[in-house]
Design a protein around this nucleic acid. Structure first.
Ligand SMILES: [Mn+2]
Ligand SMILES: [Mn+2]
Ligand SMILES: [Zn+2]
Ligand SMILES: [Zn+2]
Lengths: 125, 125
DNA sequence: TGTTTTATTGCGAATAAGTTGCAATAATAC
DNA sequence: GTATTATTGCAACTTATTCGCAATAAAACA
């Protein structure tokens, strides 16, 4: 299943790269200068997830948001599980450079973490 | 907006009280012995949330799950923000007695936390 | 106990997010 | 240039949740 380069893919990727925020399909479609079909955007995003180029966050609004997995400058693995913050005022979601720390009962095996803090961000407070 | 006692309300509450898991509207409807309309179940649950009898968890499947806010035995405020665990094998969600610890950048104000760990639970591993 | 008030319910329709099948298009390899 | 097949657009579909509205029934009250 070899990947191909397409204008769509490039456009979505560039948008995510230039955005400080995690974006929903909806937001991506609106912010793109070219028109891309909804289903296509989802497919591109899901492919990015499979390829670990992007990670998906599900917020308490039940919607999916996507953000680049940036290796914050040098550290190759800051990408681990980190908190996300959703501002109720400006309705934006961003990755926090705050690792998720937890322990689980015996016999539990954690594969993934989806952690979203909600409140007011610095810009809005 | 005074609350009234109804069979529906009691039934849903009892089910949640007796369940070790967080339940979706779907699961509640299925597990109830009496028939209750979908919309009604949601309304009952949302009222419980308003009254802090129940808390809502949104999992990465985008669905809402509801669990009793039990004051784990004595401690009046174990109810705080805690992790939840979703087992991909038995597809169940439970509250973990594990508090969510985090720090946020200056100027950020956290009002709520929705944290779900995903993997395999003890029963399934 | 009968009457009034209004919270709660059921129903059907609406909304919204995300997915899927299929045929057409277009990267990429040959 | 031609063939292969990943990608796209479109429309239809699924699933979760909400909403308007009229009917029902708790609870307060006379
Ligand atoms: Mn992130
Ligand atoms: Mn919980
Ligand atoms: Zn904000
Ligand atoms: Zn399990």
């Amino acid at each position: 299943m070899n990947r191909r380069n397409t204008p769509t893919k490039e456009a979505v990727l560039n948008l995510l790269l230039s955005s400080r925020k995690a974006l929903s399909q909806d937001a991506i479609e609106r912010q793109l200068d070219i028109e891309i079909n909804r289903a296509t955007i989802y497919r591109v995003l899901n492919r990015f997830c499979e390829d670990d180029i992007v990670h998906k966050i599900v917020a308490e609004d039940g919607k999916q948001y996507f953000a680049i997995c940036k290796k914050c400058e040098d550290q190759p693995e800051v990408v681990q599980h980190h908190f996300h913050f959703r501002c109720l005022s400006c309705d934006s979601i961003e990755c926090l450079q705050v690792p998720v720390e937890y322990s689980v009962p015996n016999g539990y095996e954690v594969q993934n973490a989806n952690c979203v803090l909600t409140g007011t961000c610095n810009d809005c407070s």
